[in-house]
């Protein structure tokens, strides 16, 4: 039984559903003590309960990543309970809806900017002392292939996600002397967010599947969680500043 993350403490934001839930389940299955940082207890608590029912360690801390104070409370609560924080995974995102650039509502851009760029900044800054204290500090930012390619459907989603890649590269430089690895994953997975996108753009699923060599959309736990587990674990100690595009081979431009 692989317990490569035994003894590690990880926060996963946006873990109440979708990719975040998949990541949290995978990290917990490998022995990590996982904090489900979810905006709503209604989604976060069931995920934590399910992980515990499977024999893992998890608790929910209600966290709104659009505010510094809420992320600070999550980090402080985690360290207070577990005495350490080794892995910060920032996955939460909101606000992406199809629109023309010139018609994008201000509140949608605010949500995208806050949950991606701003929250990455805050997650990084507030977790830094604890990641530095860990012997294997890891920061993983969940970006998107659209953060590399741009998007014709959600034009401001792409720069919001691109910012995370630049932050990761910069912090890989800045935190390298501290032994902290900082990376991104750009997934395509079956999630409520993607299901919503499919409802907005009915041709999107077919278009994605048609250009994906592996011919399917990823599973949040098995396909995405496994890659994050690698980035969070001991085998990725010489990987930093990278983006792993985890999309079945759809985007081949890196």
């Amino acid at each position: 039984m692989n317990r490569s993350l035994e003894g590690r403490v990880a926060i996963v934001t946006g873990a109440g559903q979708g990719v975040g839930e998949g990541i949290a389940r995978k990290l917990a299955s490998l022995g990590a003590q996982v904090v489900i940082a979810a905006r709503r207890a209604e989604t976060g608590e069931p995920v934590a309960s399910a992980i515990r029912a499977d024999g893992g360690s998890a608790e929910c801390i209600v966290t709104d990543v659009t505010t510094r104070g809420s992320i600070a409370a999550c980090v402080d609560g985690t360290v207070s309970t577990h005495g350490r924080l080794d892995v910060m995974v920032h996955n939460a995102f909101a606000g992406g809806h199809a629109s023309r650039l010139e018609e994008t509502p201000a509140d949608a851009w605010f949500q995208m900017s806050r949950t991606s760029a701003w929250a990455s900044f805050w997650c990084a800054q507030l977790s830094y002392p604890h990641l530095k204290a860990s012997d294997q500090g890891r920061l993983v930012l969940v970006t998107s292939p659209s953060g590399v390619e741009g998007s014709a459907n959600i034009p401001l989603y792409s720069p919001a996600k691109a910012a995370q890649r630049a932050i990761a590269k910069s912090l890989a430089r800045e935190w390298g002397p501290d032994g902290i690895c900082v990376n991104c994953i750009a997934p395509v997975a079956e999630t409520p967010a993607l299901a919503s996108a499919f409802s907005q753009v009915p041709t999107l699923r077919g278009a994605i599947e048609a250009r994906t060599p592996l011919g399917r959309i990823g599973d949040p736990t098995d396909d995405i969680g496994g890659v994050v587990a690698f980035l969070a674990g001991p085998d990725s100690g010489y990987v930093s500043g990278q983006t792993i595009v985890c999309d079945g081979g759809s985007f081949l431009g890196l």
Partner: peptide, 14 residues
């Protein structure tokens, strides 16, 4: 860097 890469990828979307 975040701002600069944001501008870069905004280029592609637009």
């Amino acid at each position: 860097a975040a701002a600069a890469e944001g501008v870069h990828i905004l280029t592609k979307s637009v």
